[in-house]
Design a protein around this nucleic acid. Sequence first.
DNA 1: AATCTGTTTTTAATGTAAAAAAAACGGAGC
DNA 2: GCTCCGTTTTTTTTACATTAAAAACAGATT
Lengths: 309, 309
Amino acid sequence: MKGNAVFKRSYNQCLRQLAGQAIGASLPSESELAQSLEVSRTTVRSVFASLIDAGIVTVAAGGRRLVRHPGEADYFPDLQTLSAGAAVARRFMEWILQGDFRAGQLLNAAELARQFGTSTTTIREHLAQFQHVGLLERRPNSSWLYKGVTPAFATEIYDVREMFELRSTRSFIELPDDSPPWRELDVIEAEHRALLANIDEDYRTFPQLDERLHRVIHETSNNRFIIDFYDVISTLFHYTYRWNRSDEKQRNTVALLEHLDYIEALRSRDPRAIDARCRKHLRTARATLARSIEFGPFRSPSSPAGVSA
Amino acid sequence: MKGNAVFKRSYNQCLRQLAGQAIGASLPSESELAQSLEVSRTTVRSVFASLIDAGIVTVAAGGRRLVRHPGEADYFPDLQTLSAGAAVARRFMEWILQGDFRAGQLLNAAELARQFGTSTTTIREHLAQFQHVGLLERRPNSSWLYKGVTPAFATEIYDVREMFELRSTRSFIELPDDSPPWRELDVIEAEHRALLANIDEDYRTFPQLDERLHRVIHETSNNRFIIDFYDVISTLFHYTYRWNRSDEKQRNTVALLEHLDYIEALRSRDPRAIDARCRKHLRTARATLARSIEFGPFRSPSSPAGVSA
DNA sequence: AATCTGTTTTTAATGTAAAAAAAACGGAGC
DNA sequence: GCTCCGTTTTTTTTACATTAAAAACAGATT
């Protein structure tokens, strides 16, 4: 009735840790591991029990010891390490990504539950979050309306993003040079230069760096609404990034250079310069999203999913 | 298993309509009434059935006819006309209002379900919306954290509100004089003047007028995020308004005058003037909220509700 | 005293079932 | 053709049950 995703995720994490240990090494205590995995000791205990069952660990005098290194087959599939709720959110975004829904389409919970292999309760509870992302509208005693990733959506989200990011830079430049966010900015800048030097191989790692830069700026706003909104943006980009892979290396290089300019402006602490560079970068990013939308999702060859219209 | 709040609400609405009719008047058709009450014909049918049961209506040749006027006792209590979900949201806000929760307190679903007289499913689904309002934080596999209506909260919400409202005025002044929002503004202004003339008796109706003015402005932004955020503000104010009733008439009069200045600035279409008046008004409103928070909720004489800490 | 682990108690996650409401169907009357 | 209304089918809402995970408790060992 309740998935055991927490257990499976912890089990996998534990296997990864053991993979790096020597045979015979002794394992950490239950509470220690619970803390490092950020789960309860109850979960750690079931993980240990399973590890012993699988013959990976024995309990000898003086504690548990590693018997053999885990193989590929010992891990749980990644898909099972998501809670039912998280899985629903992911699959919903992936359906959008693949163009399985059309803007204006009505979605019904029972059908989605069947398609996603969960219960309507889970669907209802977790689809609600996409109301705040602006992708769904719920009408009482009726179905959900999918509003679509449309050009209007891009405009609205970017208008707010620009307001929020410009505002955040203001609090950012108020902070002293040795505050954690500025330290983080130093690191981020260094990673930008490293990535630029290796752009041919590593250009695909850009999105993570992008996320880190913008997040560190937004977080200095100390405003829960601004930070929550960045979470929305971040989720959205995580998924839409894959829509348009043309010129990926080229686009990432441009963005990297814009980031460096933007960082330079931040260091100057000159609001005018910051606004200019920030706006310029966001304009580029907005255009990229707009083109992705135009380009559209990878329409799957199969017909649109069996969801009533 | 499912409350019949829709039915009860419709039944009451129908009674109100009948109260104004003459005995013997014929009722509208099922589909007609369904449309005007914005419910399904299925619900209308059960309403009609109950009306006949209650002896308020008979079915004669040529349609249903009113037999007697409904009395007070015929109506369902207002409280029962809210869906379980809406009731949870309302009671939650009222508990906050009464100071039953302290900032930083952990809330647990089972306990709240008992207190509110519903199931945990309903609690979980509807408490989620207060995450978006910034009042709750949910930690996976654990309880909810009530973050409190604190001075920080007021600052954060007003910072965003100001950005959004200033931005919205820009789209507002782009619209032609005869567009619906400007027409609505004319009406709102007239009502302001009417209320000012009658301030001694009617000062309590100010919040509705406030809501209408700010909403018509926000809505011209055509931005779902801005409009959603105004919904949050609006909900919050609806409840916090009652925290501090001192100087109510005085404060409302000041706000009315500020509104009129603000409207005048909008008519001038001069961005500088608009910003000044808008900022001034929002500063006043912000200070009012800040004072309400300081003043605090009406601490109920009973101990804080039985929710685990 | 502090940490470790075995056991018990609570609580959150989530599937299932039943009632309410919506939607669809279909015939009758105009 | 169109509206009206009785019936049937779907779908949403919500309570409840069950399992996973967390938290609390308690004895043991260092």
